[in-house]
């Protein structure tokens, strides 16, 4: 696990008048890691990124290459914008990335005539071509069409290599695709920082759960594709999910804990075929925890999977730790997201 600091945001704050807009707390970006700052609109994520990149505040930000949320295209061609501010060696890389991102055909087009998606791809190619050691991206997939996101994520992941990256998003799929660690932000403050899967599955408090939801994230490999669905082999568990990835693709499957239904086991095997859900798993209850008015039940079905149910259901079922229990999840409630990094 890399632990040297690539970029310390510790102590960075930004205020407008008496209003504290952002307080980075003791957040730091470690060498080689991808830290995703996740939170709702207005959480202060972009301001945090601007502080890190030296656009705001006292930092020079010289080690950071930064892509703003709305990349601006200057007068001139797509090519001029692609290569703006780059050295020769970086320019070659930018041209190559533009090709991989599918925008090498618009390099001769005046920038004013480019679509939002084309602008974002050009800006991504320019930003990722920079040789600066830290990459800061604000909503990198915001203008990318849903069907292209996996491909673009993969290109970003490759281009980042082992550089440290700070990515800001309000899109949970971006967290799932990119994050080594996730920092949850709301109201200008960093509420929780930790490994992505841990934070998504175990939000450290009601306020964080409100931002994040309880989210199951399972890493695996696509073994089969069937219409809009893929079957993913996660260690110890087969999962059907919405996805179009080819067999052999490394993906992360994500579904909310509220989408998981629990069934008490009376006749083992029989109850697993009585509903329309594609995913049925069986295992012992590991933990039961009250979360506000709800109860989180974590079941070991080869991997820990969390279900969120009401206290009323909980009482009706009489579940206790170590009980065998069945879980089901509709395939349409689970999403397979291409992993940008293994």
């Amino acid at each position: 696990m890399p632990s040297r600091t690539a970029l310390s945001l510790s102590g960075l704050t930004w205020s407008i008048g008496d209003d504290l807009i952002v307080d980075a707390g003791d957040l730091e970006l470690r060498t080689g890691e991808r830290l995703v700052v996740y939170g709702p609109n207005g959480a202060g994520k972009s301001t945090l990124l601007r502080l890190a990149a030296g656009i705001l505040g006292e930092r020079t930000g010289d080690e950071v290459v930064y892509m703003p949320q709305r990349p601006y295209m200057f007068r001139g061609s797509g090519r001029r914008n692609l290569l703006l501010g780059l050295e020769d060696a970086e320019s070659n890389k930018a041209e190559m990335l533009a090709k991989r991102l599918g925008v090498s055909n618009v390099l001769g087009t005046p920038a004013a005539r480019l679509s939002g998606g084309e602008r974002q791809r050009l800006a991504l190619a320019r930003t990722l071509a920079s040789s600066r050691p830290v990459v800061a991206l604000d909503e990198p997939l915001a203008a990318i069409d849903a069907q292209d996101r996996d491909e673009v994520s993969a290109v970003i992941g490759d281009a980042l290599g082992d550089r440290a990256a700070l990515v800001v998003t309000h899109d949970r799929d971006v967290v799932v695709a990119f994050a080594d660690r996730v920092a949850v932000m709301a109201g200008g403050r960093v509420l929780q920082v930790g490994p992505a899967q841990e934070v998504l599955l175990h939000p450290g408090g009601d306020d964080i759960a409100e931002v994040l939801g309880f989210q199951n994230v399972l890493a695996g490999t696509v073994v089969k594709s069937e219409g809009p669905l893929v079957q993913v082999a996660c260690s110890g568990l087969m999962v059907w999910a919405l996805g179009t990835q080819a067999s052999g693709s490394d993906v992360r499957v994500t579904f909310g804990a509220e989408a998981v239904t629990l069934h008490t086991v009376t006749t083992p095997g029989a109850e697993l075929t009585t509903d329309s859900a594609r995913n049925h798993w069986l295992g012992p209850v590991r933990t039961i925890a009250e979360v506000g008015r709800l109860v989180e039940v974590v079941v070991d079905v080869g991997q820990p999977v969390a279900a969120l149910i009401t206290a009323g259901s909980m009482d009706g079922m009489g579940i206790e730790v170590d009980d065998q229990i069945a879980m089901s999840v509709k395939a349409t409630a689970a999403h397979a997201v291409t992993a940008a990094k293994q």
Partner: peptide
Amino acid sequence: SGDAQEQLAALH
């Protein structure tokens, strides 16, 4: 525009 100024600053 603010976007242009920000992009200009971002180019370092």
